[in-house]
Design a binder for these strands. Structure first.
Lengths: 226, 226
DNA sequence: AACGAGTGTTAACTAGTGTTAACCGACTTA
DNA sequence: TAAGTCGGTTAACACTAGTTAACACTCGTT
């Protein structure tokens, strides 16, 4: 699932570093292990990792200083600090340097992995717009846009929602009352007629590709064929 | 320093709850203690706390369900989950529900307080110093500046506030009435028209990156796509 | 005190969106 | 096949939002 996410681990205690490295590798991270702050910076520059796991206390350059330098180049990269037992003050300082999370030693691998994933998710979620393929169209639900070659059709919110539900059930029946309840709140007569209008509008916009059509199933709902 | 921060504590075990409550009160938190999920929701709605500390396993409504409901109304409020010893799976679920942190029972008060403060700091930091990335723009809320490569656009206070709330909900709908109440104090007709003007101004400034746009959702609000 | 720059509000006009109505056609059942 | 129902299409309408410019207010400078 998360194959080949590059991760920089800076930990000066060799055996602990080795264990963490190996554990992360079994979870499909590509781990670069630095034994001090300076080495970590070099690796960061050459390998361009997506996540940093930094020990706070390290020879040559501590984790906070390192984080500060890296953040100048990359203000959004997720950083997890590993702090010694009673480093309360340091922890707060870590956040002030823009680090996203921290973990107290000793920690469980389970916990570290959860935190890495939650930070990655947070960043990743922002960019993952699904591009939905409908025949020769590409439909972007978030942007409410329907692409056909180089033509762009801007959909309204309602059109977009309706088309989205149709694509979710593509080639199967999408229930009338389901849509009505979901988009209009209830399935009374007037909303039903309103929906018909939107189906009509979508059909007009989908006409450019004749292999795509919205078929009515009398009494039940609609089927998007594509 | 942090005098009078309102905190909602939901913990069904009365004696544990009491101890935590008292400890937090000595640290200048104003603590509202709920004994189950439903009571917690009521308190949330009436007291409007700034931080939530939620036990996961509670009668009537569990912590995750509760958090989900509250996040619908307030997407940014910091939440700390208290989880039983070996609830690893639940923890993951907790993050998926948008909770910001968790703590395994038994926990030290020290640790809880650090986490509360660090979450509060994080929000504070974000508002004051963090560089917010919007497509190819970098937005500094405190400086009210919008950077695009080497161009700098100076935003007014209103523009900056509005853009900040949009970025907090990026790719989701930001409620019209929420902004109006938050920035203008009430959602009457004239303020609504005023807001439209600011949306228009922001759109003009965000035009430099075509992948960024503010989409209207008729009757509900706006979505910042980036 | 007068001025001007900057900011936010109000107003006027324009554009877009969703609902309702009217009319029509297609399918179902008796 | 006639009656009844359901859905299709188009256009009118009401309402919401977008845009631009004028206006009013604040604040610092002269």
């Amino acid at each position: 699932m998360n194959s080949n996410i590059k991760l920089l681990l800076a930990e000066d205690e060799p055996s602990l570093g080795q264990i963490v490295k190996e554990s992360l590798e079994t979870r499909n991270f590509e781990v670069f292990h630095a034994l001090n702050g300076e080495e970590a910076l070099e690796i960061y520059l050459s390998k361009n990792p997506e996540v940093l796991v930094l020990d706070v206390m390290m020879p040559k350059k501590d984790g906070f200083t390192l984080a500060k330098e890296i953040r100048e180049k990359n203000p959004t990269i997720p950083i997890i600090f590993l702090t010694a037992k009673s480093q309360t003050k340091d922890v707060i300082e870590g956040f002030q340097h823009g680090g996203n999370d921290y973990l107290k030693k000793p920690f469980s691998m389970e916990e570290l992995i959860i935190r890495i994933h939650s930070l990655l998710d947070r960043i990743h979620l922002k960019k993952s717009f699904e591009k939905i393929v409908i025949g020769n169209f590409i439909f972007n639900y978030e942007k409410q846009k329907l692409y056909f070659n180089d033509q762009i059709d801007i959909l309204t919110h309602r059109e977009s929602e309706l088309l989205f539900y149709l694509t979710e059930k593509r080639n199967k029946i999408l229930d009338r009352t389901f849509i009505l309840n979901k988009l209009w709140g209830n399935d009374d007569f007037f909303n039903a007629r309103s929906m018909d209008v939107f189906i009509s509008k979508l059909r007009k916009k989908l006409k450019k590709d004749t292999s795509v059509e919205i078929i009515n199933v009398r009494g039940f709902g609609y089927k998007l064929i594509c």
